[in-house]
């Protein structure tokens, strides 16, 4: 007998063949999990990067419109190892009665591999999220970011390449005059999504003038940082007072904008910085001009 799981079959499958979900099933044809075991299992599955639907008697699985669903349960009847639904969702069943959470997770990992679904990348999802209730489309973030994270579509600023964002760097949110850029995994508000207070807005309007801080423009400072890097092996480097000054400025910049040192270290060559800065600026200007007309 197969379990009459109330799987949704009507929605057309989008391009997410790699979707994989684990259902911790209790209902017809299965005994309930002991509470402690259920908690341990769900926790272990989540820690492994797996999405979980906990199905209680009478409930149903959240819609899975493509990909694979692994149903874990204390089944009282024999289940097929693998079945397919009309919409193309592959459903796998595994009886985990008597198995520890770790063993059940191992089963899930095996099924995921058998279904040719890649293991999730162990990546801290770090990227800007735009609060369009606040964004005024000023394009400062586009002009500022050297890593091509932002782009414009139909005159509107967008995050287009979130995978190019530098982990733990919230610098673009610091230059946003409207506090409209969030990094949900940032430590402090309002960048982490906390409510924007009147004080936050005032602080933004009084924002440190980065140019004056650096005694020039930000990209000049970054270029000099790169020059410093290149002259690391130069015998004269310690006597290079100007460079030292710039370095101090850069440290200040890093502190002010909370930019991790790794970001500075990963900056492209001075020429490339210049080119990218000009390109980003041109994109921003073009978008602003287009929006005016």
């Amino acid at each position: 007998m197969s379990i009459p799981l109330p799987l949704p079959l009507s929605a057309p499958p989008p391009a997410s063949a790699a979707a994989f979900r684990v259902a911790v099933y209790e209902g017809t044809g299965a005994n309930p999990f002991p509470p402690g075991e259920r908690t341990a299992l769900v926790t272990a599955l989540l820690a492994k990067g797996l999405s979980v639907s906990v199905i209680r008697p009478g409930g149903s699985a959240g819609n899975l419109v493509a990909g694979s669903l692994l149903v874990l349960g204390h089944f009282t009847d024999e289940q097929p190892d693998h079945a397919a639904t009309d919409s193309g969702v592959s459903v796998y069943f595994r009886n985990v009665a008597g198995k520890s959470a770790a063993e059940a997770v191992e089963l899930a990992v095996q099924v995921r591999a058998a279904a040719n679904i890649p293991e999730p990348a162990k990546w801290k999802p770090w990227f800007p999220v735009i609060d369009y209730d606040r964004c005024t489309n000023c394009m400062q973030c586009l002009s500022f970011c050297l890593f091509d994270v932002y782009g414009v579509n139909e005159g509107k600023i967008q995050v287009q390449n979130n995978n190019k964002c530098k982990t733990d760097c919230p610098a673009c949110s610091r230059v946003c005059p409207e506090v409209a850029i969030l990094f949900p995994k940032y430590r402090h508000g309002p960048i982490n999504g906390d409510v924007v207070s009147a004080d936050d807005v005032r602080r933004e309007s009084m924002k440190v003038d980065i140019s004056s801080l650096l005694g020039g423009d930000i990209y000049a400072a970054l270029r000099d940082r790169n020059a410093k890097f290149k002259s690391r092996f130069s015998k004269e480097r310690d006597s290079d007072k100007a460079l030292e000054e710039r370095q101090k400025c850069l440290v200040k910049l890093g502190e002010k904008l909370d930019i991790p040192p790794e970001v500075f270290a990963s900056l492209p060559s001075p020429d490339e910085i210049q080119r990218k800065a000009a390109e980003a600026n041109a994109k921003a200007q073009a978008a602003l001009e287009a929006n005016k007309s």
């Binding site: 989008p14 391009a15 997410s16 979707a19 979900r21 509470p35 259920r38 908690t39 769900v42 989540l46 820690a47 990067g49 797996l50 999405s51 979980v52 639907s53 906990v54 199905i55 209680r56 409930g59 149903s60 959240g62 819609n63 899975l64 419109v65 493509a66 999730p120 990546w123 999802p125 770090w126 990227f127 999220v129 979130n162 995978n163 949900p184 995994k185």
Partner: peptide, 24 residues
């Protein structure tokens, strides 16, 4: 949640799903 009778969905990380444009 797991000790309640409420069915629920749990995801490892909403940010990751958003980054991957997960249709779920």
């Amino acid at each position: 949640l797991t000790e309640s009778d409420v069915p629920f969905d749990a995801v490892p990380d909403l940010c990751e799903m958003s980054a991957k444009k997960d249709p779920a």
